[in-house]
Write a protein that binds this DNA or RNA. Structure first.
Lengths: 66, 66
DNA sequence: ACTATATGTCAAATATATTTTACTTTTTGT
DNA sequence: ACAAAAAGTAAAATATATTTGACATATAGT
């Protein structure tokens, strides 16, 4: 899986730390980090949560070509 | 979770059965059915797979308000 | 250089998505 | 009405997402 740079950017736009975003969506900091690193695939429910907090769409943050 | 009517419609547009869609994305028929019934949340990877087969976006098939 | 905060990473434990098998109910076609 | 295919549902087993705790590295401020 590819690193998720879109989340990192959206997080920067909101001036949020990984920890802050993790807390806002109710997951651990390590999981948030792993998602950005592209180490495993979150559930759609979690993806929606992240989108809502960051004000982005699923396609913005989680689409991948191929 | 709400029933996913969008998948059902997109599937109808492609004239695909739950079984056919399940096979196309490499999951069991029961899992596909459960996803449409909204019984649990698939992983984003699986969502992307379903989107590709049905020619729809993540926002088309998996976004939910609130 | 020093301290604090943010990020990256790993291993073991836990929660939950997914499979498998099996059975029931709906729908569709003849 | 009948048969066949499609869809719905459930329980037990398996795969994998996620947590927890702990430690290492990087980055920013003084």
């Amino acid at each position: 899986m590819a690193r998720n740079i879109a989340i990192k950017v959206a997080r920067a736009e909101k001036d949020m730390t990984q920890k802050a975003l993790a807390e806002a969506v109710g997951i651990s900091r390590q999981t948030m980090n792993a998602i950005e690193q592209g180490e495993y695939n979150p559930t759609i429910k979690l993806c929606r949560s992240i989108c809502r907090v960051l004000g982005k769409s699923l396609d913005d943050l989680f689409w991948e070509e191929d």
